[in-house]
Design a protein around this nucleic acid. Structure first.
Length: 470
RNA sequence: CGGGGAGUAGCGCAGCUUGGUUAGCGCGCCUGCUUUGGGAGCAGGAGGUCGCGGGUUCGAAUCCCGCCUCCCCGACCA
């Protein structure tokens, strides 16, 4: 008799499977207030690894970290018409504090363009002050109607970059640079998620932006997930907040700003892109635990040998954890580490020890082989590289297989049942986009014929990537 | 806000139609022994204002009225 599956099979009920993974891999719980989440230590360790990798790339791109307040005067939001209109429905507003009603309500930041704009205006006097390249790691609040842990929560963690530039070209170049060198690079090479990078249509644009660019991932059930965005804000916020400078010829000019962010949603994206019926699969580059050394049983010096093995791996720069809980059965522990998606497992028991070997198990390819103890560090390092590549290849193949090249709106609807569709934007257009929206299908982004990110949305030959989205 | 569903142990559920011993089951948890190479077995044990308030009744998880909350599907969204 087969045992009951550890998780609800994905094919049976994908949302249920997602919930099961969150619980069994000990990633997160629902918080007490609707739409909030508790990120458990393993989930948070994954987020910390994401932060470290993204933060390093942001710094390489020249931005500096700072911190702006959680509370923003309500009047700030109202200074940019589209921005306030876009965010009003989901604002959490504090009207009462310190035992009395506030003179002016303060909003809990849904994003920080406004408050940062106010300070950019103070700090920007001369063209020599530009570009001003800021980033902050923070929590933000958007009162969501239909929350899902990690994917859409009322409070989430993110980084938000905000920059001011002397020219439109400079601002655009920076927004594009962040999109590719920070986000796309991180997602593809660390998360092993082959995102499609493109330009949002006017309908999908960020409230207050002149251009929104996006990284879109395909989930295991063939939907789309927006993993990160980079916006050109034109002079909209500069005008609203007075971000001005004197140029080389002494003429007063309005600055051009950008903003860009990725959030804890990426943890949900990781689960949905790479998870299988045995649980999460974490790419080695990201994994907070790359290797677990599993002592099969406490006999004949096995545990001590495992401890040394773990130390050797750690010394070689591998993120390793020792599992010497030999009072719990091997099967249970193996299953638990699979659920958590640890890419490499080293099982060491009396039999292995007698052979002076260890059993190396790969989570992603599912292979298992005996490896001499003397060569194990190198074998592990090769396995980590191999598993990283395999995960990306697999995700890329799946995305390509599940993306239909179509020519009509009818075909889009059919394709979107199980995957993505790509068709000429000239065929679809804003009218077709509105029609699809009625059926819960959206244009995820527009891409150029060469796969590049278009500079406008009315160029010829643009391809619309269309799907149902989370 | 529209349409569906559900509130009983940490989690998942049964019991309710037809009111009646001490409210049950699975998983999990604790203790002990035996185990440990793919989710261990046996024995013992802890754990409950049956969502809240009222009503009917000798007696309510169960019937009646009111309220609250949560989940799922849509519209909003990193």
């Amino acid at each position: 008799m087969a045992k009951a599956p550890v998780l609800t099979p994905r094919a049976e009920d994908f949302p249920r499977w997602y919930q099961d993974v969150l619980n069994k891999a000990e990633l997160a719980d629902n918080g007490p207030v609707r739409g909030t989440m508790v990120i458990r230590p393993y989930g948070y360790a994954i987020w910390e690894r994401m932060q470290a990798e993204v933060d390093a790339r942001i710094k390489t791109a020249g931005a500096q970290n700072a911190y702006f307040p959680l509370f923003i005067p309500e009047s700030y939001l109202q200074r940019e018409a589209e921005h306030v209109e876009g965010f009003s429905p989901e604002l959490a507003v504090v009207t009462h504090a310190g035992g009395k009603d506030l003179e002016e309500p303060v909003v809990v930041r849904p994003t920080s363009e406004t408050v940062i704009g106010e300070f950019m205006a103070k700090w920007t006097q001369s063209y020599r002050d530009l570009p001003l390249l800021l980033n902050q790691w923070a929590n933000v609040v958007r009162w969501e109607l239909r929350p899902r842990v990690f994917l859409r929560t009322s409070e989430f963690l993110w980084q938000e970059g905000h920059t001011a530039h002397a020219s439109e070209q400079d601002a655009r170049a920076y927004a594009v640079r962040i999109l590719h060198e920070v986000y796309e690079d991180f997602m593809r090479n660390v998360l092993a998620i082959p995102v499609v990078v493109g330009r949002k249509t006017a309908r999908e644009r960020f409230a207050g932006a002149t251009n929104t660019m996006t990284c879109e991932a395909m989930t295991g059930d063939g939907k789309a997930l927006q993993m990160g965005t980079s916006h050109e804000l034109g002079q909209n916020f500069a005008r609203a907040f007075g971000i001005e400078f004197l140029d080389e010829s002494g003429v007063r000019q309005l600055a051009w700003t950008t903003s860009w962010g990725v959030s804890t949603r990426m943890v949900g994206g990781l689960i949905m892109c790479h998870g299988d019926d045995a649980g999460l699969q974490v790419p080695p580059m990201l994994a907070p635990v790359q290797v677990v050394v599993l002592a099969v049983r406490d006999e004949g010096g096995v545990v001590e040998r495992c401890r040394r093995l773990a130390e050797d791996l750690r010394a070689a720069g591998v993120r390793v954890e020792l599992d010497a809980r030999t009072d719990t059965s091997l099967g249970r522990r193996a299953t638990d580490w699979e659920l958590k998606g640890v890419p490499v497992r080293l099982e060491l028991g009396p039999r292995d020890l007698a052979d002076d070997a260890v059993t190396l198990v790969r989570r992603i390819s599912g292979t298992k082989e005996s490896t001499p103890l003397g060569a194990v560090v190198e074998a592990v390092q090769m396995a980590l590289v191999g598993q990283q590549g395999e995960l990306l290849d697999r995700a890329l193949r799946r995305r390509e297989d599940a993306t239909a090249q179509v020519a009509t709106v009818e075909e889009v609807v059919e394709a979107a049942r199980s995957g993505w569709a790509a068709l000429p934007w000239s065929v679809l257009g804003p009218e077709g986009e509105a029609a699809l929206a009625q059926q819960g299908i959206s244009v995820r982004c527009l891409v150029g014929p060469d796969g590049g990110v278009p500079v406008t949305d009315d160029a010829a030959d643009l391809v619309a990537v269309v799907a149902r989205a989370y």
